[in-house]
Computed example of a mutant assay.
Amino acid sequence: MKKFLVPTDFSDTSKNAAKFAAQVAAGVKDANIILYNVSDKIAAGSDGSLLTETDDDRAIVLGTALQNLKTEIQPFAGGTSIDCVLETGSSLVENMERYVRHYHIDMVIMGITGATRLEQIFMGSNTLNMVNTGLCPVLIVPPECTFRQIKNVVLASDLKEVATTTPVEPIKSVLDIFKPTLHIVNVDHEHYVAVTDEYKAEINVLEKMLADYKPEFFFIRQYDFLEAISQYALDKNIDLIIIVPKKNSFLGGLFKTSHTKKLAYHSHIPIVAIHE
């Protein structure tokens, strides 16, 4: 069974991500969606005022909201089972980490917003912090992104030490969900007319690692990764981008955390982030 954890705060962005998750799961045999909400316990008023809401009251309201969201997305999920989980805690990401570990979640699917810098700080941090845990693939659904069948997937690769830095099994688990045409794209401003022998050696290794998916390799000579990958996605009708953020990258492209953030906030195409 494929288990998809879908956190929601009942915002339009998170509801859209839940609908997207339902449509993904509809195409997966034996899938399960877990709609997930974490709520703080209610503390006493600092000014001594009486509280009119109790923890039980809040649990009832949030539980009802989860059930309503389940009802809303069920028509898009086919026969996929949808569960609702409500937990208390002070940190969404810490709660999710425990849940992912304990229940062996295959993928987290969540939205991200970030039209302004403040939205990026306050609303996007949970998504990127979940990516940084490296526990499982995180599918990031841009605001207002609508689902379409995922036929063409880009895997962005720096083609550096791929044998030790490529998280092969998590990548395969994502590809097995969609069974797409796989494009492996490398963006580097130092590319010349011919691919170097070093790159050719790395290509051979990665091609063997992902042989079941018959990858096609593409090289783009350009400084700006975001611009390059966005244009490639448009030209090739790409439906999903897979990125592998690196913790200690010395490269100047996508693989720095700041560039990963930029892609996550500005892409109109869903992204799956899989840590090395």
Rank of each mutant, 00 (worst) to 15 (best):
Thr127Tyr: 15
Gly124Cys: 14
Ile238Thr: 02
Ile109Arg: 12
Ile229Leu: 03
Leu206Val: 04
Thr64Met: 10
Gly48Met: 05
Asp212Phe: 05
Ile112Thr: 15
Lys247Glu: 07
Tyr265Asp: 02
Ile177Asp: 04
Ala156Arg: 09
Ala115Lys: 15
Ala194Asp: 09
Tyr232Gly: 06
Asp224Gly: 02
Lys200Leu: 11
Ile34Ser: 03
Met96Gln: 12
Phe122Gln: 11
Val131Lys: 06
Glu202Gly: 08
Met1Asp: 07
Asn248Met: 05
Ser173Glu: 08
Pro245Lys: 00
Glu190Gly: 01
Leu69Asp: 02
Ile229Arg: 01
Val187His: 15
Glu119Trp: 08
His266Ser: 12
Tyr223Trp: 03
Ala43Ile: 15
Leu128Ile: 13
Leu254Gly: 03
Val153Thr: 12
Asp56Gly: 10
Tyr232Leu: 07
Asp40Leu: 07
Ser90Thr: 15
Leu240Trp: 01
Ile269Asn: 04
Met123Glu: 14
Gln149Val: 12
Asn129Thr: 04
Arg58Val: 14
Asp235Gln: 09
Lys41Glu: 05
Leu155Val: 06
Ile229Gln: 05
Asn95Lys: 15
Phe4Thr: 05
Ile184Gln: 11
His259Asn: 05
Pro143Asp: 12
Gly124Arg: 15
Asn129Ile: 01
Ser11Lys: 05
Val28Met: 12
Val100Lys: 10
Glu87His: 13
Thr196Phe: 06
Val205Ala: 06
Lys70His: 08
Ala211Thr: 01
Leu35Asp: 02
Ser49Cys: 04
Ile269Met: 09
Gln120Gly: 11
Gly252Leu: 07
Glu94Pro: 07
Gly27Gln: 06
Lys236Ser: 03
Ile177Ala: 02
Asn126Lys: 15
Ser267Pro: 00
Ile229Ala: 00
Asp9Met: 03
Gln149Arg: 13
Glu169Ala: 04
Lys15Cys: 07
Glu190Arg: 15
Ser90Pro: 03
Val6Pro: 00
Glu207Ala: 14
Lys246Ser: 06
Leu210His: 02
Asp235Ser: 08
Ser230Met: 00
Ile150Asp: 10
Asp239Ala: 02
Asn132Val: 08
Ser230Gln: 00
Phe255Gln: 03
Ser46Arg: 11
Glu119Met: 08
Phe20Glu: 10
Asn129Gly: 08
Leu234Ala: 04
Asn68Met: 13
Ser81Tyr: 11
Ser230Lys: 05
Tyr36Ser: 06
Thr8Arg: 00
Thr260Gly: 02
Pro137Asn: 13
Asp197Ser: 13
Ile140Met: 13
Tyr223Lys: 09
Gly89Trp: 13
Lys200Arg: 10
Glu72Ser: 13
Tyr99Ser: 12
Asn186Pro: 06
Asn204Trp: 05
Cys136Ala: 14
Lys3Asp: 00
Ala163Trp: 04
Lys261Glu: 09
Lys15Ala: 04
Ile105Arg: 11
Leu182Gln: 08
Pro270Trp: 07
Lys256Asp: 00
Ala233Asp: 05
Asp235Glu: 10
Thr133Met: 14
Glu94Val: 15
